[in-house]
Write a protein that binds this DNA or RNA. Structure first.
Lengths: 213, 213
DNA sequence: CCTTTTTTCAAGCAAGCGCTTGATCTAGAC
DNA sequence: GTCTAGATCAAGCGCTTGCTTGAAAAAAGG
């Protein structure tokens, strides 16, 4: 029988098991080269298996891709929805959302969300609705906080378009951000919040950082 | 002999010839399915050729991808640099840049830039420097106008980071924008300019538009 | 210790891939 | 017409791909 429905939930950051390791290594490879350029043989050898052994855990390569995306979204969602239920000033909660978003986007070893963003086209139509449903829950939290910001007079403009522009600015960071380049995620989150909300935050002094594309 | 170095430059929007048609159809297919999922047979049949005939115009499939990206950047660059040399209020010129950027990004039949953004990973390292050089020229124009905005007090914050955030917001639009959804490119450009610069512009009323991801 | 179940191996199939090849067609110059 | 160079055809080679397969190894249960 196929595994996956374990009776006991594994503790956080524990040994993820073969299946979890396949997901993690696949995420890394998908992010580096893209889904199509990653062969199942690449995945097998990165996990320390023989060419056909992954089939015991997943039926198809597509199923691995879907698992990567859902795993990443689930993890982010836990943190984002927790912030959504906290109390506090809207601006502070907004910045917390931004910081959490960037952490799950940029933290090393967390390649799930970049894969979701870059390889969406490679996910077959049948698997998309489940992922989209998770994204909807994700956006709902943001919309709530944005509504609070608007009530406080800190957000003007059309919510939907502005939110899409904002996600664009944030998600695009994965294209150019290089860890260890003199700009950590927390500072970047503050800078981005200032960019979206104007004022309140303080602009960064530039360090002699890395090149970007 | 290989064609491509014609003595006379073809007039705008004239018949692009076989080579040009291969580039155009490839751009369309690359955008829809991605570079890896597009086979040279797909390209051939979309252009009305037999499976191996494209080799007369390009040595490798990679060469087609590079041609698509450079073609698109060259076209955009002509328009962007023209705006860079115009006179006028900084804000108006900035909005013109935004509008032009969005037109080359979203206009139907202009799939070059989306391919550049989505399939960058698929471009082999050897071909990248030429494309990057064109991008540098592109960004230089923006930096000039942003410097003017800053002098006029309309742009605060770290130029480099803010410019990257801004490009993120703009480029991401290609993910969610649907032509004919009650929001034309000109209005979108105005909305985006307001988002970046705050104030001056007027927010859009929402029409009962399309879904987005 | 033997049986049963879970997990892994290692060879390989069928299909699709980028690209090659030698022949064929087309059109203008003489 | 004849020649020639440019342009296209159509078959297919060699390789990689996702996935299958039948068996072997390892773990678990009694």
């Amino acid at each position: 029988m196929l595994p996956g429905s374990k009776a006991v939930q594994a503790p956080r950051d524990a040994d993820p098991g073969r299946r979890g390791r396949i997901i993690r290594e696949s995420a890394r490879l998908f992010r580096e080269r893209g889904y199509e350029r990653t062969s199942v043989r690449d995945i097998a050898s990165a996990t320390g298996l023989q060419s056909g052994s992954w089939v015991y855990y997943f039926r198809t390569k597509q199923e691995i891709l879907a698992a990567v995306m859902e795993e990443g979204l689930q993890r982010s969602l836990v943190r984002i929805e927790a912030i959504g239920q906290q109390a506090g000033a809207p601006r502070a909660r907004f910045e917390a959302l931004v910081r959490t978003h960037l952490e799950t986007l940029l933290a090393p070893g967390q390649d799930f969300i970049p894969v979701l963003l870059y390889d969406w086209r490679s996910l077959e139509a049948a698997a998309r609705p489940r992922v989209v449903a998770l994204q909807r829950r994700y956006e709902a939290v943001w919309d709530t906080v944005i509504a609070e910001l608007r009530a406080a007079g800190e957000w003007t403009g059309a919510t939907r378009i502005d939110r899409l522009l904002m996600f664009g600015a944030l998600n695009w960071i994965a294209h150019w951000y290089r860890p260890g380049g003199g700009l950590d995620v927390r500072a970047l989150a503050a800078e981005a919040t200032r960019f979206f909300l104007r004022g309140g935050g303080r602009s960064l002094k530039r360090k002699p950082g890395r090149r970007t594309r």
